[in-house]
Design a protein around this nucleic acid. Structure first.
Length: 114
DNA sequence: CCACTGACGAGTG
DNA sequence: GCACTCGCCAGTG
């Protein structure tokens, strides 16, 4: 496969693509935190990177971005005026993920454990 | 190359 | 429990 002389010592996948790859591994009915995804993507302190990467998706990709929530088990209110946070919640509930009375997800119950 | 930006996390008041 | 601040780091113009 790799012809000699060409060194792929650096992953062709850019940071964003790695993030997408990790998120796409999240099973249905589970959720992951930004920090968790970042860590699995190889960016221990890149929680912001994850959010920024997802903002670039905006539903244009097949990545289940709605399974990514913040460390408090809540969907992040993002800028732009879009109501994606609302859609996210509906999609999660549709997958069996229950929200608390305060609009919070029980991470101890639904958080993805690789 | 430089500056700004940003779906966060953790800590503080 | 909520509002604010600081820190992290790569992408975009």
């Amino acid at each position: 496969m790799m012809p000699p002389g060409i060194q792929n010592d650096r992953p062709v996948t850019s940071t964003y693509q790695r993030i997408y790859a990790v998120i796409s591994r999240i099973p249905e009915g589970c959720v992951a935190t930004y920090g968790q995804v970042a860590f699995l993507a190889g960016i221990p302190h890149g929680a912001r990177r994850v959010g920024y990467a997802l903002s670039a998706l905006q539903g244009k990709s097949s990545v289940p971005w709605h399974r990514v929530v913040n460390a408090q088990g809540r969907v992040s209110p993002r800028s732009g005026g879009s109501c994606a946070d609302e859609v996210q919640r509906l999609r999660l509930e549709s997958e069996g993920v229950g929200f608390g009375a305060n609009g919070r997800i029980a991470l101890d119950r639904y958080q993805w454990r690789p």
